[in-house]
């Protein structure tokens, strides 16, 4: 099976793994806020340091983070080039007449790229250290107060649980169908974009049909196992907010505070 790191959980026993998912979601939100507060490239050092600290504490191999960046490499390159072209500046490095390469543009390109990398890496840290179930539990609990507005928090969480469960299964299945159609002479590699999209039909239709069948069978199996919605449901693993969670939040806030101080002082 092909590698998919984005959204993949790596089991472990680290401090980070043991944190309450709600804590980790809060940490990620604060972390994202940090990367957006930063307006100059060297201040990125603070969210970066935070990420490195989290990475070390979690014991997750750097390889996973690198892998999670692979799917966005095209986006990264695109954003980099885009900013090279559309950032104006005075410090001209190269003048081609119609376009000037400026120091500011290079700096801005690097800055944007680093921000995207840090964002994706941070989000990956959350999914790498939090089991999908814990994550959905966390989201469900965080959204629970919205239930009074008839917000379907439980249903949303259940949908996410099932989606996560079936991603690998459907990946395997699409591989199988692809192989079968290739054996019948299907060509997915040549031709222009329209031809290629059209050539995906023999894969997509069986995949849809199979997803519907899976949904059907799963619904029957869930019903047989006494599923009747979120009402009166308990959970085996209770979410517990412990000392460590408080500590983690405090540390995150500390990073946040120091960043804000820096921003004010070094304006």
């Amino acid at each position: 099976m092909r590698d998919i790191t984005l959204g993949q959980f790596v089991a472990g026993n680290s401090v980070i793994h043991k944190l309450d998912p709600r804590t980790k979601i809060a940490m990620m939100i604060l972390y994202i806020a940090m990367t957006f507060l930063v307006k100059r490239i060297y201040f990125m050092a603070i969210p970066f340091a935070y990420l490195v600290l989290e990475l070390i504490l979690s014991g997750i191999s750097l390889r996973y983070i690198v892998n999670s960046l692979k799917p966005i490499r095209i986006l990264l390159i695109f954003m980099f080039i885009l900013n090279l072209f559309f950032t104006s500046g005075e410090n001209v490095w190269l003048d081609l007449g119609f376009w000037k390469l400026t120091g500011e543009a290079v700096l801005q390109s690097c800055f944007i790229s680093i921000r995207i990398i840090l964002l994706v890496a941070g989000a990956s840290m959350l999914t790498l250290t939090t089991s999908p179930i814990a994550l959905t539990d966390g989201i469900e609990k965080l959204l629970a107060p919205l239930k009074i507005f008839r917000f379907p928090a439980h249903e949303l969480a259940m949908m996410m649980t099932i989606a996560l469960r079936f991603v690998p299964t459907l990946m395997d299945e699409s591989d199988k169908i692809r192989n079968a159609q290739m054996s019948r002479g299907a060509d997915f590699e040549s031709g222009n974009i329209f031809k290629r999209v059209k050539s995906m039909i023999p894969i997509l239709i069986p995949l849809f049909v199979s997803s519907f069948r899976k949904a059907d069978e799963l619904a029957i199996a869930m019903e047989s196992r006494c599923y009747h919605g979120g009402e009166g449901r308990t959970r085996m693993k209770q979410l517990k907010f412990r000392k460590e969670d408080l500590f983690a939040i405090l540390i995150t806030l500390l990073f946040m505070a120091s960043l804000i101080v820096l921003l004010i002082v070094l304006k």
């Binding site: 199988k176 079968a180 159609q181 054996s183 002479g185 023999p202 049909v209």
Partner: peptide, 21 residues
């Protein structure tokens, strides 16, 4: 490969899952 795939027919497990037309 094109020639080979014409010579060798492949019936995978549960081939009915590849029906699409």
């Amino acid at each position: 490969r094109k020639k080979v795939r014409e010579l060798v027919g492949m019936v995978f497990q549960y081939p009915e899952y590849q029906l699409f037309a």
